[in-house]
C-alpha cells in the first residue's frame, strides 16, 4: 500500500464513527482519485462500530487497524510511536488526521519523527506529481494560506473537518479489517494523568441546539438569560471567549478556534460580534440566528436569521416565546 493516501482516526463520536471521519474521508477520497493513489483508512485502538461499512461507502481500498492494549485512550507517546512505525512500513504519500485536541499533540510530533512537512487547520489539499498544495486557515479564519510541500517524505496534515462538507456516498460493500503489527513494547507514556477530566453531562460538541452569549450581555448576571433560553429551547449554553476570560462562565463553554468546535442544527448567537475566531467554532452550524444591536455586526453575514436589537430586551421575550 505504499504511496497511499492514509486517513488516520481513533475513538468514537455520535453516530458510531470517529469524529470528523466522513469529512476527512471525503477530502482524502477526492485527493486519492486525483492522483490515482489508493485511499487507506487506519484506525488506532478499538475500532468504532460504523467504520467497516463507512469505509465501503467512501471507496477505501484497505482498512488498517493498529490495536494494542497500550493504545486504549490513545496516549500521545504511544500513538506517535505506532504511527512512526506504520509510516516506515507503509510509506504513505500523505497522512491526514481530523484536527481534534489530541491531534495537536500527535500530528506535529509524527512529522518531527518523519522529518516531514506538517500543516494544521487544513481546508483543502491538491496534488500535482510530487507536489502538494495544502490550504489552511490562518488568523483564526480571517485568511487562508496555501502552503506548497515538495519532494519526498510523508507530509502530515490535520484537517479542519467542520470546514468541509462530507459527500455522503451510497452504500458500498463493508471492508474487512487488516491488522497491522507494530512493536510498542519499548514505549511508555511519560505524561501521567493523575486526575482525569470529568465529562459532566452532555457535550457542546454533540448539542443539536446551542445558545451562546457574548460581551454584548454587558454583565455576568445576564448570562442567566442565555442559560434560560438554552433550556427553553432544549439546547445547551455556550459563550464567546471574553466571557471565559472574565470568569463569567467555565472554559468548557467557550466556542471557537481555541474552544469547542461545534456543529449544531441551530446556533443562537446573542451579543456576539462574529469574529473569525468565534465563527471557527460555530460556522459549521446548519443555521445561525443572531441578535445584536449593531446592524453592521459581522455575525449577520453568517446568520440565516437576525434581529437588530437589545439582547436584554429580547432575551426574556425569546424565553417566553420558546416556552409557549
Amino acid at each position: 500500500m505504499s504511496n497511499a493516501i492514509v486517513v488516520c482516526t481513533w475513538g468514537e463520536e455520535r453516530g458510531g464513527l470517529p469524529g470528523g471521519a466522513e469529512e476527512v474521508l471525503s477530502l482524502a477520497g477526492s485527493l486519492a482519485r486525483s492522483v490515482g493513489s489508493d485511499l487507506v483508512w487506519l484506525t488506532l485502538g478499538a475500532q468504532a462500530a460504523g467504520v467497516a461499512e463507512t469505509a465501503g461507502r467512501y471507496g477505501v481500498a484497505a482498512l488498517h487497524q493498529i490495536d494494542d492494549a497500550k493504545l486504549a485512550d490513545i496516549p500521545a507517546d504511544v500513538a506517535v510511536e505506532a504511527l512512526a512505525q506504520y509510516c516506515e512500513q507503509q510509506s504513505p504519500r500523505i497522512v491526514l488526521f481530523n484536527q481534534m485536541a489530541a491531534t495537536r499533540t500527535i500530528a506535529p510530533r509524527l512529522a518531527a519523527r518523519l522529518d516531514s512537512a506538517v500543516v494544521m487547520g487544513v481546508t483543502e489539499v491538491a496534488a500535482d506529481g510530487d507536489t502538494f498544495d495544502i490550504t489552511a486557515s490562518a488568523y483564526g479564519g480571517d485568511t487562508r494560506v496555501v502552503y506548497r510541500v515538495a519532494g519526498a517524505g510523508t507530509p502530515v496534515a490535520a484537517v479542519w473537518a467542520t470546514a468541509i462538507t462530507a459527500e455522503c456516498p451510497e452504500a458500498g460493500a463493508s471492508l474487512a479489517v487488516e491488522s497491522v503489527a507494530v512493536d510498542l513494547s519499548s514505549v511508555s507514556e511519560r505524561v501521567d494523568i493523575v486526575e482525569p477530566a470529568k465529562a459532566e453531562g452532555p457535550k457542546l460538541e454533540d448539542a443539536e441546539i446551542i445558545v451562546s452569549g457574548g460581551r454584548g450581555l454587558g454583565a455576568v448576571e445576564n448570562y442567566k438569560l442565555i442559560r434560560d433560553l438554552a433550556e427553553a429551547l432544549d439546547g445547551m449554553a455556550g459563550a464567546s471567549r471574553p466571557l471565559v476570560d472574565e470568569g463569567w462562565v467555565d472554559s468548557n463553554h467557550q466556542v471557537g478556534l481555541t474552544g469547542k468546535i461545534t456543529k449544531p442544527n441551530l446556533y443562537v448567537a446573542v451579543g456576539i460580534s462574529g469574529a473569525s475566531q468565534h465563527m471557527a467554532g460555530c460556522g459549521a452550524a446548519n443555521a445561525i440566528a443572531a441578535i445584536n444591536k449593531d446592524s453592521e455586526a459581522a455575525i449577520f453575514q453568517y446568520a440565516r436569521f437576525g434581529i437588530v436589537g437589545d439582547a436584554l430586551e429580547l432575551l426574556p421575550e425569546l424565553i417566553r416565546a420558546a416556552r409557549s
Binding site: 485568511t143 487562508r144 494560506v145 496555501v146 502552503y147 436569521f305 437576525g306
Partner: peptide, 21 residues
C-alpha cells in the same frame, strides 16, 4: 523549509440573513 507559503487569500462569506424587523 518543508512547507512554503505560495499564496494567501481572504475567504468570502456569502451573507443572506433574513432580518426580523
Amino acid at each position: 523549509p518543508r512547507i512554503q507559503m505560495i499564496r494567501q487569500f481572504v475567504p468570502t462569506v456569502q451573507g443572506n440573513c433574513e432580518f426580523i424587523d
